[in-house]
Design a protein around this nucleic acid. Structure first.
Lengths: 114, 114
DNA sequence: CATAATACCTCGCCTGTCAAGGTATTTTGT
DNA sequence: ACAAAATACCTTGACAGGCGAGGTATTATG
């Protein structure tokens, strides 16, 4: 089972920020971590991930720096900024709020029906 | 507080179908019912609503018929089809699944961190 | 008698996802 | 030794859904 694009849309930024809240990381690792933490059930598509990085950096919610790997492929690390942390908490609040509204609307039970 | 377009996206169809599961209804009433059932906290934008109707009817998840009002403006009623009911249950399952995944990803707690 | 409410609809912009394509390096299996 | 897989980055362009802005017509209300 997979999550439809239209459902994941609007959450990718928060998902990425949540990872960066734990520690600085880079694209490939973030994706693997998401896979791992959802028991291989969910992963962001690469194109989605990298376009999100671009967007988040433009908004100054994250900043990037190249790692100094002596071995392996070069890695571009991302760190969450203070502004990013603030936004993350807002996004999480928004999610909790939206979740409750959607739950209500899909429950199909109206008490105050006319 | 309002729900961002990107979060609502992917749920409008299910929200509309949920209403039609209760009873046949028309655009204006559906929107008012959504408003009422969320304590005026949420409503679909008209353009979103009508484009959803079009999409859902093309997919044969709903069908429409004109009401025979003797008074007031004409109303276009919508009814959910059997296919629509099936799809609704799928959508609801998808929502429950996605909700759990998103909750997990926004919890920022990794037990199996390397 | 104007304004709000009811009720429908379309056009075109904007944004985010993602399939498909690309590059370069390193590790692994045979 | 060499091919294949894994690691790691990135761009382009198509596509779809939300919605602002605009429109029409009728009825109710202050």
């Amino acid at each position: 089972m997979s999550i439809a694009s239209d459902i994941i849309r609007g959450h990718t930024d928060a998902i990425i920020l949540a990872r960066l809240l734990l520690k600085d990381s880079y694209g490939y690792e973030i994706n693997k971590a998401i896979l791992r933490s959802t028991d291989q059930e969910f992963e962001l598509k690469e194109a989605t991930l990298y376009s999100a990085f671009k967007r988040l950096e433009e908004l100054a919610l994250i900043r990037s720096y190249w790692g100094d790997e002596t071995t392996g492929a070069r890695r571009k690390y991302y760190a969450i900024t203070d502004k990013g942390k603030e936004e993350y908490y807002k996004m999480k609040k928004d999610w909790l709020y939206a979740r409750q509204i959607i739950d209500k609307l899909l429950s199909s039970e109206d008490i105050y029906e006319e």
